[in-house]
């Protein structure tokens, strides 16, 4: 077996990895935004819920989160009479990763929001914006730029975490590598995993490059 064949086989798993990455990242952001919003409420129930969620999820290994999503979500849904046992494993993989990462993103959003200069909000009000416009046009864009380094780190962490979906039987790039190394009866095993690592690395380097470009575009916005 040639190395080029190893590379091609591994790349067959890449689309699944990327789909997992994209969807779990999108959902994690949406849940994270909601959580950050709840966390910033003065309402003790909303605030308490967000704190509890963050505390629980941030102490949970991503691998365990995937298992809990896979075995736990169907049971939770059965309680309200919905049978989701037949859903694709990919959905549970996305759910597990999204739940896990939503907590980290929520914390990033919350701390970014809190570190926007209060004078910015006042300036928006005195030029006649209402509170909603001030939030959307001035506060949110600045909070986003403040949160960006954290978001980048979390996205990279998520790339790496997608490799864990093997535990619920999703065939991504990592489990393709495991299959390949098992088939080969011990030949080329090291090479397979080194190549796999290199592919992940390339994905991460591309993400870092994208964020660098974006930051360069906004280099003069010093928030």
């Amino acid at each position: 077996m040639k190395l080029s064949k190893v590379i091609i086989s591994l790349l067959h798993g890449l689309p699944t990895t990327l789909i997992l990455l994209a969807f779990s990242f999108i959902f994690a952001n949406l849940i994270g935004l909601g959580l950050a919003w709840l966390y910033l409420r003065r309402n003790p129930i909303a605030n308490g819920f967000a704190r509890g969620y963050l505390g629980l999820v941030r102490g949970t290994p991503p691998l365990l989160m995937l298992l809990l999503a896979y075995y736990g979500l169907p049971k939770l849904f059965l309680l309200v009479g919905i049978d989701i046992n037949g859903w694709a494993k990919l959905i549970f993989g996305i759910a597990g990763l999204a739940i896990g990462w939503s907590a980290y993103l929520a914390e990033a959003f919350r701390s970014a929001y809190l570190s926007v200069d209060a004078g910015q909000y006042e300036a928006a009000l005195v030029v006649g914006m209402d509170t909603k416009q001030a939030f959307l046009r001035i506060i949110m864009p600045q909070a986003f730029l403040i949160a960006l380094p954290n978001i980048e780190n979390l996205l990279i962490g998520l790339v790496k975490a997608t490799s864990l979906v093997y535990v619920i039987g999703i065939v991504d790039m990592y489990s393709t590598a495991v299959d390949l190394s098992n088939q080969n009866q011990g030949v080329y095993q090291l090479e397979i995993f080194v190549i796999l690592a290199l592919i992940y690395w390339v994905v991460v380097l591309l993400i870092e490059w994208g964020f660098r470009r974006f930051r360069k575009h906004y280099q003069y916005v010093t928030v």
Binding site: G119, Q120, E122, A123, A124, V126, V127, I138, L145, T222
Partner: peptide
């Protein structure tokens, strides 16, 4: 909307 204000530390919108 009928008044305006100038701040001590400018508070120009940074973005």
């Amino acid at each position: 909307r009928h008044m305006a204000m100038v701040f001590q530390n400018y508070n120009l919108f940074k973005n």
